[in-house]
Amino acid sequence: MLILRRIPRWATTGGALVAVLLCAGLLQLANANPAASQTLTLTAWQASEDPGLDPNHELWSRTQFVQAPLTAQAGSYAAGGGSIPVVWARALHYNNTLYVRLEWEDSTQDGSALKVEQFADAAAVEFPAKSATSVPSVCMGQADMGVNIWQWRADSLGNPNELYANSVVDTYPSTDDLFYTARAAGNPYANPKQGPVQNLVAVAFGTLSPAATQDVQGQGAYSNGRWSVVFSRPFTGASEDLAAFTAGTSTDIAFAVWNGSEGDRNGRKSVSSFLTLNVSGAAIPEPEGSDWLVLALAAGALLVIGGGGIGLGLYGLREGKRSA
């Protein structure tokens, strides 16, 4: 310390600054991040049996959920999106197939988009593409790091003849695609073989397009003002622009929900930021266990620290007044 005091201040400050800049440069070169992530984690547990696509399967009630806060994403004017504040997410895997279940509150079941002013409820999950080396932008990815999106729509539920029972259409004499213009144009939503979930890829705004492989399955159910939707896909992604999963590893996952009665469609929706998806090799934990002990300890620690803090603050204020 004495030696330091004999050195002019500009020299010590300048030297320290150079050392800091060098250290930062070395850390960047080594790509060594000294910080640890503290974002939410959704764990996909190993299921003991196939949960299937039924959102009400008994396995889901035994699976812990994570509440992901959503924020508005309006198209161009902040009058839409954000009407769904939170989504409950659960995940499982069975026989190298990932199952993700989303649940959210929605007082209106918007399952039809027959009129131009009608929009269907929908939900989506987003993952980084297999080729992404880091976390891509949650907004449709970026040029060097794409995203894989699975979107389910409520208006794909059920039989169209039942959903639109009072509609009348001419009978086409031909079943050739040429007479079904949307199908002929490659609109996957017009494809009768397409399930309720579209498998999509994107590398930036305006690049969202159907993936070459449509292998994502899904099913939704509406009950008591809540939607529940299950998505499912085998771990292995067919190409580099799709997500891939492996037990014992982590990736990222984000959610989006559209509320049709609020005019949500396309970019107007409620979205989360990326969470960590941990594909665990462990089985679903039993609800009985030491959860209360751990949480009681955690709550106790917070209460002690918080109470101590408030006490300290009040003591400080009193002392401050006294000394004034």
Partner: peptide
């Protein structure tokens, strides 16, 4: 900060298998 952090803690508890808890009021 504490409300948001506690919400995350409870969500992390869920991801560890320690039950799931409603935390919307904390975020709000």
């Amino acid at each position: 900060f504490a409300l948001q952090g506690t919400s995350t803690m409870l969500q992390d508890a869920a991801s560890q298998g320690y039950g799931s808890y409603e935390t919307r009021w904390m975020l709000w």
